[in-house]
């Protein structure tokens, strides 16, 4: 082995290696070439074994040439390898692309019933003023549903509540949530702030605006100084919370045997904004609830001294509030359970 032939071998190796690197078409081939050419048992190592047969003064020259060859090969491997890897990623990305305009995979939505949700929202508004939810029975006795609310038997006001009676003596299906007032007063001492949501029943043929089963929310507040002004202040805030802070409200006389003075509470027509339209019977107003100062007799039946204490009560139909908020025109929709209706709600 002499210097010239070794030099020639290295040149051949370089030329051949650069050709093979240039011909590689996959990143894996580059990896393989790197091993074949430069690895521990690679071709360059093989060639350099001949270096041992050279005189000592010639060895550095060969070493310099060998380094140069190694660097050339390494450079070519890196350059070609980089080219190939970039191309492969590109092809993969391209191969993996999808039509992003297809719809998402559906997750079943589910929904909560608008009446139950409306009652929950009402409870939330009054909850901010310290009102707490109570519940009372739906199968109620005549005493609590009527007599303790200052509606004795044969009172003409009984006509206001068409009643369904049941096969239990002196019992009926509560016609309103108001008997809950009596039950709360029996359970609590003033100060009382109670909210009573629940199902009620009337002997009333069902149509778009009448229902034999419906939901009411009753409110009761009793203390020494609770007045009509407190009632008005709260109802205004309630109306603004439910229908918008820009809505005008109206406080006018009403009639209930269990309140004195009695109140009807109106909000400006949500359809015409008070300009009078068929939806508000051309009055510009929509009545949303009845209320008043708890009648002294009712306080007495509740075991509360009507001279020391006084308070207000109100009652509203959850359907009425839901109708106005959600633009529902037919009460029957709430209990028909047509999923095409219910699924519109969150």
């Amino acid at each position: 082995m002499d210097l010239d032939s070794l030099r020639a071998d290295l040149e051949n190796l370089r030329r051949g290696a650069l050709e093979r690197i240039a011909a590689a078409s996959e990143p894996a081939q580059i990896d393989q070439l790197s091993v074949d050419l430069l690895g521990k048992k690679g071709e360059l190592t093989l060639v350099l074994r001949g270096i041992g047969g050279l005189p000592a003064e010639q060895r550095p020259k060969v070493g310099a040439i060998a380094n140069e060859v190694r660097q050339a090969i390494e450079g070519a491997l890196a350059e070609r390898g980089g080219e190939l890897r970039t191309g492969a990623l590109g092809r993969r990305l391209q191969a993996e692309s999808v039509d992003v305009t297809t719809p998402g995979r559906p997750i079943p939505r589910g929904s909560r019933h608008p009446i139950i949700e409306t009652m929950a929202e009402i409870a939330e508004v009054f909850g901010q003023f310290g009102f707490v939810v109570y519940e009372s029975p739906e199968v109620e006795d005549d005493l609590t549903n009527f007599q303790m609310l200052n509606i004795p038997p044969d009172h003409p006001a009984r006509d206001l509540w068409d009643t369904m009676y049941v096969d239990i003596p002196e019992h009926l299906l509560r016609t309103h949530t108001s008997p809950g007032q009596i039950r709360v007063m029996h359970a609590e001492r003033p100060p009382i702030r109670a909210l009573l949501p629940g199902r009620c029943f009337r002997y009333e043929a069902t149509d778009a605006s009448h229902a034999s089963e419906f939901f009411q929310v009753e409110g009761l507040m009793v203390d020494e100084g609770t007045s009509l002004a407190d009632l008005r202040g709260l109802l205004d805030q309630f109306a603004h919370a439910m229908f918008g802070a820009d809505k005008r409200t109206r406080f006018r006389p009403g009639y209930y045997p269990f309140t004195e003075p009695s109140v009807a509470f109106d909000v400006e027509c949500l359809i015409c904004g008070g300009r009078r339209c068929p939806a508000c019977s051309h009055t510009g107003w929509m009545t949303i609830l009845g209320a008043g100062m708890v009648h002294p007799v009712v306080l007495q039946y509740g075991g509360i001294d009507p001279e020391r204490y006084q308070g207000f009560a109100f009652g509203m139909g959850a359907e009425r509030i839901a109708n106005l908020r959600h633009g529902v025109g037919d009460l029957r929709l709430y209990l028909e359970n047509d999923l095409r209706f219910l699924e519109q709600f969150p």
């Binding site: 003023f129 310290g130 707490v132 609590e188 100060p191 009382i192 702030r193 507040m221 203390d223 020494e224 100084g225 609770t226 009509l228 002004a229 407190d230 008005r232 202040g233 709260l234 109802l235 205004d236 805030q237 406080f251």
Partner: peptide, 12 residues
């Protein structure tokens, strides 16, 4: 003409 106020009685 009944004024509207926010109740300021004792809380339950």
């Amino acid at each position: 003409l009944v004024p509207g106020v926010t109740p300021h009685e004792e809380m339950p």
